[in-house]
Computed example of a mutant assay.
Amino acid sequence: MVSASVKDVAALAGVSVGTVSNVLNRPEKVSPAVIIRVQSAIEKLGFVRNDAARQLRAGMSHSIGLVVLDAANPFFTDLARGAEDSAAAENFSVLVGNSSDDEGREAAYLDLFEQQRVRGILLSPVGDVLPRLEQLRRRGIPTVLVDRVSENANFSSVGVDNLAGGEMAVRHLLSLGRCRVAFVGGPTSIRQVAERLAGARKAIAEVHGATLEILETESLTVLSGRAAGLAIRRRAAGERPDAIFAANDLLAVGILQGLMLMGDVQVPREIALIGYDDIEFAAAAVVPLSSIRQPSVLIGSTALELLLQEAAAEPGFQTSHVVFPPELVVRESTLG
């Protein structure tokens, strides 16, 4: 079935194509009687306007691209919700891509969003993509980095102080009298993981006799956490850490499962456990998890606002770098 065109609508309504365009885009320029005739023709023909083509002709889109590291992580789901809510308030839509920590997939989404001529891109980057982002900007597509504090003043960014968050998590464990701490997370090539580990190291260095064991994982998933928890449970009691800092809550949930699978390792009596992000699963775990909270929804909405400001800005626009403080949330996994 061939879709009705603007010409078809104009012919049925007895007006010019330009008048139909005005009804669709600038109705204040058309008389009420003509608007009624054109709308009646649209309904009879089942005409659907091609917004994609219209935006391409105008060189402007009402879509925003968002590329996240892991769409399965509720942190990024909440971040996307914050961006979508703010976008909807400004009549924009958000197209979400999941890089899965893969630079190739990330590059493919950036290419796709460029082809779609999105108004701008929110990006939680896998690696060093600054040269690509510079290219996008030259083509009129600004980018804001999310869940990351930019070291490059050329790009706005919104994130949390992960160094302070890692330090906060381990200081909490040390305050409980624990001294054999394990950091579980990875790969450490992910900047957020590296920063949280650096914070953990800083806290450990301040306490004489405290040690930090690093157990790098292949991914930041529940399954990777469960494998780490099982490996720790298989050790003799005296060889286990007495506290664990997981690089995110998904890992922490998996670690908890691995440790308590057979009921022979008690959390927190034998091993205190803290995660990062404070996703909903943290509070709902069989032993509610302590965590370092990130304001995920606020990160998404703030990034969207910065992006639209830059998209509408004149030359000489100054970028912004918003860094939210982390917050310690204490629950049963570190109490006792």
Rank of each mutant, 00 (worst) to 15 (best):
262 M>Y: 12
151 E>W: 06
229 G>C: 03
129 V>M: 01
74 P>D: 05
215 L>Y: 08
336 G>Y: 04
233 R>C: 07
89 A>G: 02
94 V>L: 09
264 D>T: 15
19 T>V: 15
91 N>S: 10
178 R>L: 04
266 Q>F: 02
309 Q>R: 15
200 A>H: 07
163 L>T: 14
203 A>H: 00
106 E>M: 11
75 F>V: 01
16 S>H: 08
265 V>A: 06
65 G>E: 01
237 A>I: 11
165 G>M: 11
327 E>L: 09
164 A>S: 14
137 R>Q: 09
56 L>A: 12
315 P>Y: 04
240 R>Y: 04
201 R>V: 00
26 R>A: 14
51 D>K: 13
30 V>H: 03
157 S>P: 10
64 I>P: 08
164 A>L: 12
93 S>A: 10
171 R>A: 05
232 I>G: 01
128 D>M: 01
294 Q>E: 10
71 A>Q: 14
193 V>L: 02
309 Q>M: 13
277 D>H: 05
125 P>Y: 06
327 E>I: 10
188 T>I: 12
36 I>D: 15
224 S>K: 09
78 D>L: 08
272 A>G: 13
325 P>N: 08
38 V>H: 04
265 V>L: 01
277 D>G: 07
47 F>S: 12
30 V>D: 05
50 N>Y: 00
213 E>P: 07
257 Q>A: 10
124 S>G: 12
286 V>T: 15
112 L>P: 04
10 A>L: 08
283 A>M: 10
211 T>L: 01
218 E>N: 14
